[in-house]
Design a protein around this nucleic acid. Structure first.
Length: 567
RNA sequence: UGCUCCGUGGUGUAAUUGGCAACACGUCUGACUCUGGAUCAGAAAAGUUCAGGUUCGAGCCCUGACGGAGCAACCA
């Protein structure tokens, strides 16, 4: 019960977005019969990315919070761009994020019949007409944002003629691009969207659901609002760029509706992340050009990429919650996302010893052939995760960075003549080293250990400045570790005027380390299992591992305070 | 030179409907010392794009500038 009051406090403390306020007010006013019903409407033309997560969390989140429903609706009105492959991935990613549309899986294509009938109705009422002009002429007649358009010569053709033409368009009698259906609204409207928008076009391509049934397909504007209406959506939440479409949305639904009910379109700011590109088209280019290994490349901002990188759904939801929904076009700092990930993984991921760049340490006074197990706490943030035993013996590996022959001031790790504790084991003292004659690199470090100082024995009061992680040379498992950095070096790669965001691709976005040594138990790491490699960062076992050798993706590095000291 | 939307610390969001500008991230200090690169304590940092107006009182209301974004696909 203490938890509940705590949760309530959290609840009352978190700010309410303007959208949530609208919903609260509508519910209070009894609008739509006190009902809230939202929808998440992806076009199945690509994989979902973290920008979509923002929409998903809002659409599903608001419905969940206020006792409503949220539909999943595929906006599949353009058969040439859409594929079933994407539908499956979209469903998987939404579920992974933790949301459920239950049995409400819909498709805009489900409404093609109704939309066609509605189009016929508009023609009969003199509110739509067939235009025989080519695209460039129609476009030119629309005018510019600053100047009104002019009316098409076909604008006032008899309804019967339009009707006949529309039916024949759908029978396939005309070529693509030869004719379109337009709503008759206002060519002089200050809003370009209202200048007799095209609502149907001829496309002679197979649709993934309706096959060859249709030769004419509705445009987005002619499908979205009506689909909302058919499904009883109350709050149709979309991104800011659809703001100028709202009058058209309302106009079309008004021609369709019979009662009081009309879905309400509300716009919010889309997610922009520093050093991240969110455009589906450009992400597709990266995949096609082989600049990444696929949609699920761990550097991609796609949900499947983030998943493979080791992000948890909880961390993504937490992040979305932190950034909020407004009408300001914001650029959110990736460090906020990374904070959310660290925060979540800190409690979740067990601490494991791993050495990325091994340096051999030989304990000269430790018996050859002897092995003993030492006990380590799996997660100091969550003691319920228990302890584990790891083998200690004469030859070990430590991180190269943990030894310096000529240390700077405040370097508390191993140095010639210096002492450190091996975490969980003994205090050791460096007595010598072996260098490579040619390169001058340190190849081996020789130490002695003090048998009285074993951790947990609690006998000695001795303290040393540094504590190192280590792995037994004999027992350690070889692993490949992939260090990922941001894909782009520019703060806003997608915000550039030109198309060459490619210039900002970070050449060091992937660093593969092959000779890493990890604790024996990691040989059996399950795909997507998360760990904190002590002192190095959070890592995630990759399902794309090769030939039985464990592969780990670095999810996010720990904040490195030592780096500053060394500089 | 049209229409629509938006301007609050470095970043992102708040401000009980007009009452001392708050929170988070980031940054910087310090503490803790079998290292948790966690945790704890603290600091710097905006007077709300600008100029007027209404008001006892304006981030909030009004007017006008300035700045940014979106809109001229048979894409969504």
């Amino acid at each position: 019960m203490n938890d509940q009051t705590q949760a309530e406090k959290e609840e009352s403390r978190s700010p309410v977005s303007f959208i949530e306020q609208i919903i609260i007010d509508d519910l209070k006013a009894g609008k739509n019969g006190g009902r809230i019903h939202t929808r998440f409407p992806p076009e199945p033309n690509g994989y979902l990315h973290i920008g979509h997560a923002k929409a998903i969390c809002l659409d599903f989140g608001m419905a969940l919070k206020y006792g409503g429903k949220c539909n999943l609706r595929f906006d599949d009105t353009n058969p040439v761009k859409e594929e079933v492959e994407y539908i499956d991935s979209i469903k998987e990613d939404i579920r992974w994020l933790g949301f459920d549309w239950e049995d409400r899986e819909y498709y805009a294509s489900d409404y093609f019949g109704k939309l066609y009938d509605f189009a016929i109705d508009l023609i009969k009422r003199g509110l739509a007409y067939i235009d025989d002009q080519p695209a460039d002429v129609i476009s030119a007649q629309k005018g510019t944002p600053a100047q009104p358009g002019i009316e098409s010569p076909y604008r006032n053709r008899p309804a019967a003629e339009s009707l006949d033409l529309f039916e024949r368009m759908n029978k396939g009698e005309f070529e693509e691009g030869s004719r379109v259906l337009r709503a008759k609204i206002d060519m002089a409207s200050p809003n370009m969207q209202m200048r007799d928008p095209i609502i149907y076009r001829i496309i002679k391509a197979a649709h993934h659901r309706t096959a060859e049934n249709w030769k004419v397909y509705p445009m987005y504007d002619f499908a979205h609002g009506q689909s909302d209406y058919f499904e009883g959506i109350t709050h149709s939440l979309c991104t800011l760029e659809f703001e100028v479409h709202r009058p058209l949305y309302d106009w079309l639904v008004d021609q369709l509706k019979t009662g009081e009910y009309r879905p309400q379109q509300i716009e919010f700011n889309r997610l922009n992340l520093t050093y991240t590109m969110m455009s589906k088209r450009k992400l597709l280019e990266l995949v096609q050009e082989g600049r990444v290994t696929g949609w699920d490349d761990p550097r991609m901002p796609t949900l499947c990429g983030l998943r493979r990188r080791g992000y948890t759904p909880e961390s993504i939801r937490k992040f979305i919650d932190l950034i909020g929904y407004t009408k300001v076009e914001a650029i959110n700092d990736v460090s906020l996302l990374e904070h959310a990930v660290r925060d979540d993984l800190n409690i979740r991921a067990p601490r494991i010893f791993a050495v990325l760049n091994p340096l051999k340490v030989i304990i000269t006074n430790y018996p050859e052939g002897k092995t003993e197990n030492v006990e380590l706490i799996n997660n100091p943030e969550d003691l319920s995760q228990g302890t584990r035993q790891i083998p200690f013996c004469r030859e070990l590996f430590i991180e190269q960075d943990d030894f310096m022959e000529n240390p700077p001031h405040k370097f508390f790790r191993l140095t010639p003549g210096g002492e450190v504790r091996l975490k969980g084991a003994y205090i050791i003292k460096c007595t010598g080293l072996k260098k490579n004659q040619a390169t001058g690199e340190v190849e081996e470090v020789y130490c002695t250990y003090d048998p009285e100082t074993r951790s947990g024995d609690n006998k000695s009061e001795r303290k040393v400045k540094g504590t190192l992680h280590w792995v037994s040379a004999e027992h350690a498992v070889n692993a490949e570790v992939r260090l990922y950095d941001r894909l782009f070096s520019h703060e806003d790669p997608a915000g550039q005027k030109d198309e060459d965001y490619r210039n900002f691709l970070n050449p060091d976005s992937l660093k593969v380390l092959k000779g890493c040594k990890v604790e024996p138990m990691l040989a059996g790491a399950k795909p997507l299992e998360k760990f904190q490699f002590q002192r190095l960062g959070y890592f995630c076992a990759d399902y794309d591992s090769t030939a039985g050798k464990p592969v780990f993706n670095r999810t996010v590095p720990l904040k490195d305070t030592w780096a500053k000291i060394n500089k």
